[in-house]
Every structure is written in C-alpha cells, then in structure tokens.
C-alpha cells in the first residue's frame, strides 16, 4: 500500500478478522470503508478489482495478515449500502466502480467552480471539464467520463445544467 498516512487499524491484527461482536464489527467496517475510500481517493482511482485489492489494500505483509474474501465482500457491500460503490456486474462481483465522492457531491463541486468563474450560460465540452488546462488545479480534474456524466445528470435534475450532444462531442450548458 502506497498511502502516506496509514490508519492505526491497519497494523492492528484483529482488523483483519471480521469481528463476531456486532458493535465491534460496525466500528471495524467503518474503519475499513474509510480506509478503502481514502486510498482510492489518494490514487485518484475510480474502480477496484477484487482480486487485485485482496493482495494490496486488504493485506498487510508487515504483520502477515490479510482480510478474507468474505470479509472483503462484507466491506464492499457496506460501501455499496452507503452509495459509494457499484458493481460492474452484480452477478459476478469481480470489479466495482468506487465513488469516493457521490455524484451529487461532484455535481455541487463542479457547479461551484462554474459559478465562481461566472461561466453560467456558457457551453463547455466534457473534455474541457475533465482534462482541460483550465481545470488542472481542480479536484475534479481527471475525473472519469462515466462519473462526470453522472454528476452532471444530478445537476440536470436540479435544473442547473443541460447535457447536450453535438457529433462525437458531448457538452454541457450550465444555468
């Protein structure tokens, strides 16, 4: 794991055994959830492969512990319940999309950026938003297309933006 600040739980051996006590387990899962989200956020990663994660994020070689597959699914299910995670294929449950920020939160962030720059009533392409030079310093820079669209859709529902299509390019107009 390449994170800079590791939570104390990560080097606490019981962290890697799903606790039978319900209260304890709740705390444990909470810790796991924030650990996973923090890690992905740090890496600007939007998807997670269960097999890969089993070897990286869910194991600690220093204390020779790893979370069992059952445990991993328990954590991921918990994330799904909170709306941070979606399975790419709910049947196989091998890969998932992880939204360490919900689409609503992203939408609000983008809208704030637009209003700060007083770019309402202008049209910009999705490419400009996610990879353009102007947004380079913003947090949503580098956001994956599917998530960006979902974020903008939430704005569309609120009547703050409108997605449009011209040719191959997709654009958005903010109000």
């Amino acid at each position: 794991m390449s994170s800079v600040e590791v939570p104390w739980q990560y080097s606490f051996p019981p962290f890697f055994t799903i606790q039978p006590n319900i209260d304890t387990r709740k705390k444990q899962l909470e810790a796991w959830c924030s650990l996973v989200l923090d890690q992905l956020k740090k890496d600007k990663n939007y998807s997670l492969d269960v097999n890969e994660a089993q070897k990286s994020i869910f194991s600690n070689k220093e204390i020779n512990r790893k979370l069992s597959l059952d445990g991993i699914y328990m954590v991921l299910d918990e994330l799904q319940k909170r709306g941070n995670l979606e399975w790419k294929d709910p049947k196989t449950k091998k890969e998932c999309l992880v939204m360490w920020r919900t689409p609503e939160e992203w939408g609000k962030m983008i809208y704030k950026y637009i209003t700060d720059k007083s770019m309402t009533n202008t049209v910009c392409t999705l490419f400009e938003l996610s990879s353009g030079d102007e947004t380079a310093g913003e947090e949503f820079h580098g956001i994956e297309q599917w998530l960006l669209i979902r974020a903008l859709k939430t704005l569309e529902n609120d009547g703050k933006a409108e997605l449009m299509k011209f040719g191959d390019n997709e654009g958005v107009k903010f109000f």
Binding site: W8, Q9, F12, P13, P14, F16, T17, Q19, P20, N21, D23, T24, K27, Q28, A31, N64, R65
Partner: peptide, 26 residues
Amino acid sequence: TEKVGGVCRDDSEEGLRFYPNLFLTK
C-alpha cells in the same frame, strides 16, 4: 468478554488470539 465488547479477536494461521478492543476504545 468478546461478547460484551471487552476484547476483539485475531483469527490467523497462528491461532485465535485476543486483543484489547481498540475499535471501541481508540
């Protein structure tokens, strides 16, 4: 003790080991 949340378990190849329940206290 685990049942009342006093300790938590570490179930590994080395056997079942009990630790103070830092999840609740820390």
